[in-house]
Nucleic acid binder design. Structure first.
Lengths: 194, 194
DNA sequence: ATCATGTGTTGATAATTATCAAGAATATTT
DNA sequence: AAATATTCTTGATAATTATCAACACATGAT
C-alpha cells in the first residue's frame, strides 16, 4: 500500500522514516471500479488523488452535453479539481476511472497539517506543481502551433500508455476534436509512413 | 523599488523584516524598453521575472515564422521559460516587452539559497504555482469547450487590461486564431448586443 | 455461442476558420 | 503637420473540421 506514492515522493525530497510514518497517517486508500465517479461537478473536491494503480480522467460537460477531457492521470500522477480543492467552491469537473484503480487520497486540512509538521512536503508539492505546470504549458504550445498530425504523434511519443489504454474517442476529446477527425488524422499519418 | 513584489509576497506568506531584507539581496532590478527581448529562444533562461510595472509576452515561433503567444504577464505576474529555468536547457520561448517595463529578476541559484534560508518562501512559490496552474487549466477548458465568442468575452471579463493594453493581433495569437477571425468574432459579439 | 452495445472508419455535406487581398483607420516617425 | 508604417476590417475563396449517417469490427452481457 502506498508504494508508488512514497517512491515518487522520496525521489523528489528526503524524508526520514518517522516523517514518512507521520504522513502515512493522513492518507486514505481508495479503490474505484472502471467508470465509477471520484468527483461529480457541483460537489466540493475534498481530496486530491494520487494514482497508485489505474487510470482516471477529469472532464467538463458543456450545455450540449458534450464531454471535454481536461486531464488524464495514470500511475504516479495526481488528479483533482484544483480550484474546488483549494477554495471549497463547487467543482467544475467530473473525475472518473477508466480502469479499476487504486488511489491515495489526501484532503486539504490533512495536507495543511502535513505541511506544518513536515516542511519538506512543501518542496515536494512545489516540484510536483512545477512538473504539472511545464506539462500544461507544453500542451498549450502544441495546441497553438502544431498541426493535428504533429500533435497526435507528439502525444504518442510523450505518453505511449495513453494511446494504448485510452479509447480513441477520449483521445479525440482530449485533443479537442471529434472522433471522426482523429480517425482521419491517424489515416493521414499512416499513409505518410507507407 | 520592489514594492509590488513584496506586497504580493506578504499577502500570501508572513515574513519578518529581516527575512524580507535577506530576500532583497538576491533580487536584481531590470528595466526593459518596449519590444526589447528579455529572453531569446535557444538561450538558457537564467531568470524568472516578476513584473513590477509594464507588460510582457512569451511566444514560440513555428517553422513558418508564425508567432504563437503562450502567455502574457502584467503587473504582479511572473514570467519565464520554466523548463529552461529549471533544467538549464535551451529555451523554447522568446520573451519581450509590450511596453516599457520594470522587472524583478531572480535566478535559480538565488532562489535555492532563499529557499534554504527562508522556508516560508517555499509556501509562497507553491501558492503562486497553484494560481498559475488553475489559470492554465481554465484556459485549456475554455479552449476545448467554449465557442470563440464565449472565449473572447471570458477573456475580456477575466483580464480587462489585456484587451485595453494589447494589440488585437496578439490577442488573436494568444487565442490561436488569425486576426481576421478575431475581428469577425468581435463583430458577431457587437451585433448580438445591439 | 449468441445477441446487444459500443467503438472506429468512411463518405458526403455543412459549417467554420485560414488565406489572400484591398481599403479604412490608427499609430508612429520625420 | 505630413508622410509612412502598422493595425483592423471586410470580402472572396480555399482549406479544414464538424455533423450526419451507415457499415465493419470489437467488446460486453447473457
Amino acid at each position: 500500500m502506498y508504494e508508488l506514492f512514497f517512491k515518487n515522493m522520496t525521489e523528489k525530497v528526503k524524508l526520514t522514516r518517522d516523517q514518512q510514518q507521520m504522513i502515512r497517517q493522513y492518507l486514505v486508500p481508495k479503490k474505484i471500479r472502471k467508470n465509477q465517479y471520484l468527483l461529480q461537478e457541483g460537489d466540493v473536491a475534498k481530496y486530491a488523488a494520487f494514482v497508485e494503480k489505474g487510470a482516471l480522467r477529469a472532464y467538463s460537460v458543456d450545455e450540449k452535453g458534450t464531454e471535454h477531457i481536461i486531464q488524464f492521470a495514470f500511475e504516479g500522477w495526481t488528479i483533482s479539481d484544483m480550484y474546488s480543492y483549494m477554495t471549497g467552491e463547487p467543482a467544475t469537473y467530473n473525475i472518473d476511472a477508466l480502469e479499476d484503480s487504486e488511489l491515495v487520497l489526501l484532503n486539504k486540512s490533512a495536507q495543511e497539517e502535513i505541511l506544518q509538521r513536515v516542511p519538506e512536503y512543501e518542496e515536494y508539492i512545489r516540484l510536483q506543481l512545477t512538473g504539472a505546470f511545464m506539462s500544461m504549458q507544453k500542451r498549450i504550445t502544441s495546441m497553438l502551433s502544431l498541426t493535428l498530425e504533429e500533435r497526435y504523434i507528439q502525444l504518442t511519443q510523450l505518453y505511449p500508455s495513453l494511446v494504448q489504454r485510452v479509447p480513441q474517442r477520449m483521445i479525440a476529446s482530449y485533443m479537442g476534436l471529434t472522433p471522426e477527425t482523429l480517425s482521419r488524422v491517424r489515416r493521414k499519418i499512416k499513409e505518410r509512413w507507407e
